[in-house]
Nucleic acid binder design. Structure first.
Lengths: 343, 343
DNA sequence: ACAATTATTGACAGCGCTACCATCGGATTG
DNA sequence: CAATCCGATGGTAGCGCTGTCAATAATTGT
């Protein structure tokens, strides 16, 4: 015969059905569509399941039904707090649904992303959430061959693979700089770390706002590809000061850098915002709490996660949104660090 | 007949085998154990796979082989930075192996944990990593019925389900307090948020160290079950000051709280460490960068993640470690915030 | 040169579940 | 009262892959 006998202890759906006195297919329906069963059978199956301690075999289910109830989520980093909030939204809105979340981490590697997408494809997820809009041609091809709804999150742009939820990093960067300019600052430095595509677009917002005010100067810019840390904020700021000692404001591409700048100012006895205005990005929780409180651009990360999942589930279940691209915008949270007059 | 014809475009292993001129089972072996094939067949299968764009069906594989190559990781939070580091270790050491990581988030809910473990069980993972040692009886039963290696991480204790990697939170808390006592502080406050089991044990370390010095006083303690934030650190500290105005040090169960306390001191013009010594826990990156730099207890989170996976894979592949419990210890990172004399 | 061993390969059956259709009793209708 | 419909249930036939073991080819030793 084929293979060794099924372990005696193993409970299959057949056993459950037998005990409940129904056919296997009825027992199967108990899990997928209990309303379709008569109350009496439903109860009989239910107690049989409990009595035998039946655990459905997901692989068999997936094989027979050609689908799974997994939503894949591909993000570039777990260390970056930004994604923690997105994921909270994702988990919150998947809870209560039949779908379970499977998380994958590219660590900002294009190759890793392709590999993960390939892995997901082999698993036939019900839907997929991916970060950003700068997938490689190869990744995009995989996504398009995937035969399931896909939501791109964190930013919006032209030609979505399928759906998108995000905001314009360019606009957000531009708005931040406009605000600083309004405060009367003229020499606004730019501090950037891990220049991923979204950070790059924030930079473009900075650049264009500065150019529009005829204040653009390459000396005001310090960037690195190194991952962001608070300490790095201090280091980069020191570099910036060395190359442009006359700066009166700094725009940091994220809040960790901004906090690092604040600490460095404290170390150098520079007053914030008196000597220097600081504006961060993301509006992490600590920004409001710092002394002085730090201005930042709030991005609706939690909502992004929520909407991404909601839209995805709707699409999976055939209720496609009429508008595939959802712009969640941003809010400039103006605080002490960028309002010199209030000091 | 059974069901509608397989979609014409669908490539199965059989098709690959046919094109390569081998039997399906040989093609199958190409994926699982390529060394077993002769070089010529290996090349033939390889090019057939590429030509047809074959994507293996993981569900079928899992069903036929009774296993998967998934390592499940169950953690209580993604918002908490602590786990980001653990996960970095997990991902780093799973990379290059055949196993892929599946992450699940209990959000500190016991029920959610049980639900997730049940889900994992139905998926027959190759191995499982779970956080902490305080599983419910039910969760523990699921883990034990799981028929795969299990590693508990973040802390160590008696009677592991299988393996453990972590450190003693009690000892760490005790050591932190001992250090503060050595600095001459006597009225050491305790600030705690989200009192999960590990935080609870840090508290016990605090309590016993204080009792040993005959300095224990319930008025020195402020805790809440609310999740941790920097802002909360400030709030709790204000409460603490109200109830014990004469404190000369604070031990915070995590670094976010400690940062919040520092900001609150700045707001109140209290000098750190002159008026108040501050010690945090976890040694997140920003602690070294704060002004003054903040003392903390460094926990080897990255290494915890790495070892958890390494041990797990070894166990999966039959190379069980001789010692199932690995204590990674901790280091007290003494900085300005707790060394008054150096100010 | 021949048996003994080892490396490759293949045939077969079936993993546990569900899609598809058929069935069947009973309620509804004209 | 037959015709119609509908909700509940079941039978059959795989889904795509791999475990088992047997068969064959290649290699080695004596």
């Amino acid at each position: 015969m084929g293979r060794k006998q099924t372990k005696s202890g193993k409970i299959r759906l057949t056993e459950v059905a037998k005990l409940a006195g129904v056919s296997p297919i009825t027992a199967s329906r108990f899990f997928r569509n209990p309303e379709a069963l008569s109350l009496s059978k439903r109860e009989r199956v239910d107690s049989a399941v409990k009595e035998l301690g039946y655990v459905p075999n997901l692989a068999a289910r997936a094989l027979a039904s050609h689908r799974t109830e997994v939503i894949g989520v591909v993000i570039p980093s777990l260390t970056n707090n930004v994604f923690a909030d997105v994921l909270r939204g994702v988990y919150d809105s998947s809870e209560g649904s039949r779908y379970s979340i499977q998380l994958a981490n590219t660590r900002y590697s294009i190759l890793q992303e392709e590999k993960l997408l390939r892995l997901f494809r082999a698993q036939k997820p019900a839907g997929l959430i991916v970060t950003g809009i700068n997938q490689t041609t190869e990744s995009r091809a995989i996504l398009e061959s995937m035969n399931c709804p896909v939501t791109q999150i964190m930013e919006i742009g032209e030609s979505p693979v399928d759906m998108m939820v995000g905001f314009s990093h360019y606009d957000a960067g531009f708005a931040a700089i406009s605000h600083i300019l309004e405060q009367g600052c003229r020499r606004i430095g730019f501090l950037g770390a891990r220049m991923d595509p979204r950070v790059q677009r924030r930079f473009e917002g900075y650049r264009d706002a500065m150019k529009a005010a005829s204040l653009f100067d390459p000396n005001l810019i310090v960037t690195t590809s190194v991952p962001t840390t608070v300490t790095l904020g201090g280091t980069l700021f020191a570099d910036l000061l060395a190359q442009a000692p006359d700066i009166d404001a700094v725009f940091c591409v994220n809040d960790d850098l901004a906090l690092g700048v604040l600490f460095e100012c404290q170390r150098r006895q520079m007053s914030v915002p008196g000597d220097l205005a600081i504006v961060g990005f993301n509006d992490l929780e600590f920004m409001a709490s710092a002394v002085p409180s730090l201005t930042s651009v709030r991005t609706n990360r939690y909502e992004m996660g929520r909407h991404a999942v909601t839209m995805l589930i709707d699409a999976i279940e055939g209720r496609r949104p009429r508008e595939p691209v959802l712009n969640l915008g941003f809010q400039l949270m103006v605080r002490e660090s960028s309002t010199p007059q209030s000091t």
